[in-house]
């Protein structure tokens, strides 16, 4: 039985954005939109079948998300605020997703990289799910990669 995770990712993200940021989230109406991600957080779910979660947000989502989570004006948001908020959001996505995958599994700490038009690469891994979403600040994407299992 093939399990797909896109609906769950959507639900998890909706719940996290609603609770922590007070923002509504919808699926991006067009599936294949150009990459606008400028801040990307990666988190590993280690176990029998390792999975990497890549959470990439546009510059506007990084700023708007940080402002909403920290309850400050968007002009007061620093680069560190953006990185920390994106890291924590990815941590919540990874943690909640982990409960749906066959265990036992261990969550790594998030790693955040910044840069325009980053080609997200998870060496040797296969992209198994990609969900592009929209919130009031703009677009962001969640990707799941399956790591090859060592024999």
């Amino acid at each position: 039985m093939e399990t797909t995770y896109d609906t769950q990712i959507e639900q998890i993200v909706q719940s996290i954005f609603a609770t922590m940021l007070g923002m509504e989230v919808v699926r991006h109406p067009e599936g294949d939109v150009p990459c606008e991600e400028s801040l990307i957080s990666t988190i590993q779910i280690a176990g029998a079948q390792p999975v990497t979660v890549v959470f990439g947000v546009s510059a506007n989502v990084a700023r708007g998300g940080a402002a909403a989570m920290l309850q400050i004006g968007s002009d007061d948001v620093t680069k560190d605020d953006e990185r920390d908020v994106v890291a924590e959001l990815s941590n919540m996505i990874g943690g909640n997703l982990k409960s749906l995958l066959p265990g036992p599994l261990y969550l790594s700490l998030p790693t955040v990289v910044a840069g325009k038009e980053l080609g997200v690469q998870v060496p040797g891994a296969e992209l198994i799910e990609e969900v592009t979403m929209l919130c009031e600040s703009g677009m962001f994407r969640v990707r799941l990669y399956e790591q090859p299992v060592r024999a």
């Binding site: 039985m1 399990t3 797909t4 995770y5 609906t7 769950q8 749906l100 066959p102 265990g103």
Partner: peptide
């Protein structure tokens, strides 16, 4: 919950 969420949990405990 979605069909997929239930299915994922079922697979987790019945495998």
């Amino acid at each position: 919950f979605t069909q997929e969420a239930l299915q994922a949990k079922l697979e987790k405990y019945t495998q």
